[in-house]
Design a protein around this nucleic acid. Structure first.
Lengths: 226, 226
DNA sequence: CTTGTACCTTGACTTAGGTCAAGCAAGTAC
DNA sequence: GTACTTGCTTGACCTAAGTCAAGGTACAAG
């Protein structure tokens, strides 16, 4: 088997494993596999920058990507930290505009780059359309909650909500995101986040050794409803 | 002409004038007009409350509605102030969940209430689907900007951005929203907003008499790029 | 071994903006 | 008229969280 063929098979496998793209029917997956491009991007590189021209959106198959916007003065707002199985950059599919945000790779990532023209063809596929739709609606939902989360909650609440949002409600977490990035994700600075963690440790509400984070019983009780 | 017939004509006219619903083709508009319900709701009443069961979304034809979420402690986050031509409540169309936010009428409103079952039928209409899609995408865009706006900008920047977002870049505005509601929209409290306005007036950057707001030249220069 | 460089923590300080309470102006109800 | 309400303003005060600067700690490069 030649090189080109085996790469095509890798793409096909990645598509199949993807939460959204994997729901396409076989023909559509094949079409997608032929028209998309696999990109490996290592941590600390950008997938795209705000203002870049482009006509592709991305499916994330491995790793993590942080999407954020920067103000002229350099303050930045993290819109979302994406993990495997999500899509991003779809905002520019319907209007020919530059990317409206930065997308920075946090953990070495495998991405499927899907050009607009292919996307438009896929949109004729009833199944893809409805899954794409669902994905967009759940992003809408996420952003609505995020607006709430950033305006109405303090840093402590935002931290726990972030955990639950990103990992679900567990007693124990294996954290791969750096504290600096978590701080950005919950809309604060590393110093404040560090102090929060000290305070929580002191109160015995959490323990965090290496990459293992544990929450105490009381924390769960506190967030029972949410 | 009897009562029922004339009400049907009113609905039909409202649909035609609506930015999104008005783009439906004639048959679809007719179907919509027959299946939807016209509601007049006066200021300070709720269209729905967070947690309410429901299976309709709304097209706003007149007036203004504020959509917001409340924290258990009563702090609230305004998600969006809607004006004529927009739709809202569509989040529950794809999943059978209670409304995830409150929708409060700010100015006497005319609403078209569209039940899920009808919505699903309309979704088969190619034109409606694509317009609905565009509307959702632009909401997504709006919310992304809003996350940025709430995290990375201070109250002053948020105020001017709100004006430009809501009315466009004018030299003179006729403001119908109360200061209290504007304060909520820009994510602050009336006191802080009031102080901001005094400061801006003192610096000669704005004047605000009655419902007439004027911006000075320097303000425009400052926000040229944005 | 030493130098560098991220990342994280800690301390001292500042500040934007929230809270609480009082007062005022305009509209409406009686 | 007086009283009540609602929206807005002002003052005094407080505090969560940001900024700036200095250290640690650990891993990587020379």
């Amino acid at each position: 088997m030649d090189q080109t063929q085996s790469q095509a098979m890798v793409r096909q496998a990645l598509i199949k494993a993807h939460d959204i793209l994997g729901k396409l029917n076989n023909e559509a997956q094949l079409e997608l596999g032929q028209g998309c491009k696999l990109k490996m991007i290592e941590a600390d590189s950008y997938v795209f920058r705000q203002g870049d021209d482009g006509d592709s959106f991305y499916g994330l198959c491995r790793g993590a990507v942080r999407v954020f916007k920067q103000s002229p003065e350099g303050r930045e707002a993290t819109v979302k930290i994406l993990t495997a199985g999500e899509i991003f950059g779809e905002a520019i599919m319907f209007r020919r505009i530059p990317y409206p945000a930065d997308a920075l790779v946090l953990e070495d990532a495998s991405l499927l780059e899907i050009p607009r023209e292919l996307f438009m063809r896929l949109m004729h596929n009833e199944g893809f359309r409805s899954d794409f739709f669902m994905a967009i609606m759940s992003k809408l939902d996420y952003l609505t909650r995020r607006v709430y989360f950033l305006t109405a909650l303090d840093v402590e609440d935002r931290f726990f909500n972030y955990l639950f949002e990103q990992y679900g409600k567990l007693a124990s977490y294996r954290i791969s995101t750096s504290k600096k990035d978590i701080a950005a994700a919950i809309g604060t600075v590393p110093e404040t986040f560090s102090r929060l963690l000290q305070r929580l440790k002191a109160k015995g509400e959490i323990s965090w050794e290496g990459d293992e984070l544990q929450l105490s019983q009381q924390v769960f009780k506190r967030y029972e409803g949410a």
